[in-house]
């Protein structure tokens, strides 16, 4: 049994390689350097962060490594921390500034439960409207997109900005579209009622009933791994109920549809009738590689249906 006495950062990595089994970065490169283990070992052996820039850039922050680490190292957090020491690309920094300005003077958030759609969902106005109608909740005009992007690229987050954002959210039930932001909100707002978009939509009867055994269901990896212990049961129940197959490997770790290679590997040996995704970004990736309909979960139910059923 591993000790519980030592720190939970990269020095604790013993090199078991379990993280490689689930790492899309490793699957893509088949090179030990391109894995959380490789990063941890490199740091243990004195590598400077700048030497690791290619690897850090290749990580998609899916969080798959976190639930499988027997040392309970926060590997996702380790990689996000290391990214802070690598200069962000200018276009990313500019995008963060743009999001920050857009969030500078938000409309007052509606009362009650809120959807924080995230940049990808917000970019598809039709899909966003459908999601809001299905969930029957308000939409935050400030959804922390700048903070989410800063987490992704290792950008700086102004403490004042973070405080005002969290103050706006305090005490509400939140549905969060960005998996990385959801991961951090679990730390920043302990005890808050938080759900990922996929889980929230999947709990709606109108959607759940329409998931068929011939479907291939793509769980959004970041939100799933951020609350893995609990969500394993949620998706296992969904899988048993619908008979669909999922992008969960034999360890029940989600394979992210982060690029066409991963999506193709996911579909290798499978012949689904439809592909259902929780993430709008993954919908686009699968549309490039799959010769079958690719639907966002919200597109399964007709508008108003859930409210009529309620």
């Amino acid at each position: 049994m591993y000790s519980t006495a030592h720190p939970r950062d990269y020095p604790a990595c013993s090199g078991c390689s379990l993280c490689r089994l689930v790492c899309p970065m490793w699957r893509s490169h088949r090179d030990p350097r391109f894995s959380p283990e490789g990063l941890a070992k490199a740091r243990q052996n004195g590598a400077a962060v700048t030497e690791l820039a290619d690897v850090l850039d290749a990580c998609v922050l899916c969080g798959a490594c976190d639930p499988v680490c027997p040392e309970n190292i926060d590997l996702g957090g380790m990689i996000m921390d290391l990214r802070r020491d690598v200069p962000a690309r200018p276009e990313q920094a500019a995008l963060q500034t743009g999001y920050r300005k857009a969030a500078a003077a938000p409309d007052a958030a509606p009362a009650g439960a809120l959807l924080l759609p995230g940049a990808a969902l917000r970019a598809d106005a039709g899909l966003l409207a459908r999601v809001l109608e299905l969930l029957g909740i308000g939409c935050a005009t400030d959804d922390g997109a700048d903070i989410a992007l800063a987490l992704e690229i290792g950008g700086a987050i102004d403490p004042g900005r973070r405080r005002s954002f969290l103050d706006m959210l305090g005490g509400r039930t939140l549905v969060v579209g960005d998996g990385l932001l959801l991961r951090e909100l679990r730390h920043w707002l302990p005890g808050a009622r938080l759900q990922g978009l996929g889980e929230a939509l999947g709990n709606l009867g109108a959607i759940r009933r329409r998931i068929a055994s011939a479907d291939f269901y793509v769980v959004e990896a970041r939100a799933y791994h951020a609350d893995h212990e609990r969500l394993v049961a949620h998706y296992d129940a969904l899988r048993k109920e619908s008979g669909c197959s999922m992008n969960l490997d034999l360890q029940r770790i989600a394979i992210p549809g982060c690029d066409e290679a991963e999506a193709s590997w996911m579909l290798k040996g499978r012949r689904p009738a439809r592909i259902l995704v929780e993430s709008p970004a993954e919908r686009e990736v699968f549309r490039c590689v799959a010769g079958v309909p690719v639907l966002h979960l919200a597109e399964l139910a007709a508008p108003n249906e859930e409210m009529h059923n309620a």
Binding site: P32, E37, K41
Partner: peptide, 9 residues
């Protein structure tokens, strides 16, 4: 590099 060799120490 020591970083790569160290993975296999």
């Amino acid at each position: 590099s020591a970083a790569t060799r160290g993975i296999f120490a």
